[in-house]
Design a binder for these strands. Structure first.
Lengths: 134, 134
DNA sequence: CTCAGTGCAAACGATTTGCAGGGCC
DNA sequence: GGCCCTGCAAATCGTTTGCACTGAG
């Protein structure tokens, strides 16, 4: 069986979770992933889904998003990019804006922190919710 | 008694919560606020603290921060500014970087969302944690 | 055989809520 | 008197974890 890292096998459950996550453009919550995966693996446990999403995120194969809202969301795309969240329905989408150059350096000059990363999150009203309001 | 808004009184509990929150530069969690407030109002309930922090945030008197990590944090400063979180100890500080001009307009040009706001969060290692590592 | 991985259910921690009592207007 | 607000405790919700079992190497 394939391996993801040292002491980590690419099990069927992991593969299905990864495939389902990368198949969608949305940024599903753990239980949404659970629902998607359960169609192919009806006996999978929610705990397994959580454990593997965490593991895949640790290995930088997917990204864990901690935006506002109650639940964490997962992004099948591991490249660092910005996001926007709908204030009305909670949905999260990518923003295809190139990463701000030099912003971390500028921030570094006004803090004692050693800066590691940055993330920009926009908030607004998505197209669906805009229409509903009319 | 003073009022904060329509149908909302500035009760003693609310005033103490607000004062304690605005007194500190840190961005305490709800239970940290609870501990701070309890020194002055020993019989206050945790539910009251949660309810009032939420209410004050709704009225834009304070800010609710939903950064990574498990607990939400509260900022006695209602003006919109950027933050940095320590990846090691979880502490959150302000970043005195002026707001990026035009970034929302640029984002608007590549999404169907109606953009309302944006927030930049940096992550890194705070001064204390840097020293501990040495 | 060993040990990582799993399903299941119970545990956990942060937050919310129902309710009965209390106090301002 | 009405209604906002509170303290308290129980409930809720997302997430984590302990455990016994399974299966790959």
């Amino acid at each position: 069986m394939d391996r993801i890292g040292k002491n980590m096998r690419l099990t069927n459950q992991r593969q299905v979770i990864l495939e389902e996550l990368q198949k969608v453009a949305s940024h599903p919550t753990a239980s949404e992933v659970y629902d998607m995966v359960r169609k192919r693996l009806p006996r999978i446990g929610l705990g397994t889904v959580y454990r593997n999403l965490e593991l895949l995120a640790d290995h930088r194969i997917i990204t864990k998003l901690e935006m506002g809202g109650e639940q964490k969301r997962f992004d099948g795309n591991a490249t660092n990019h910005y996001h926007i969240r709908c204030l009305h329905c909670g949905r999260v989408d990518d923003i295809e804006l190139s990463r701000m150059a030099g912003i971390e350096e500028r921030a570094a000059s006004c803090t004692a922190y050693e800066i590691v990363d940055h993330h920009i999150q926009f908030s607004g009203i998505c197209d669906n919710c805009k229409r509903e309001k009319m």
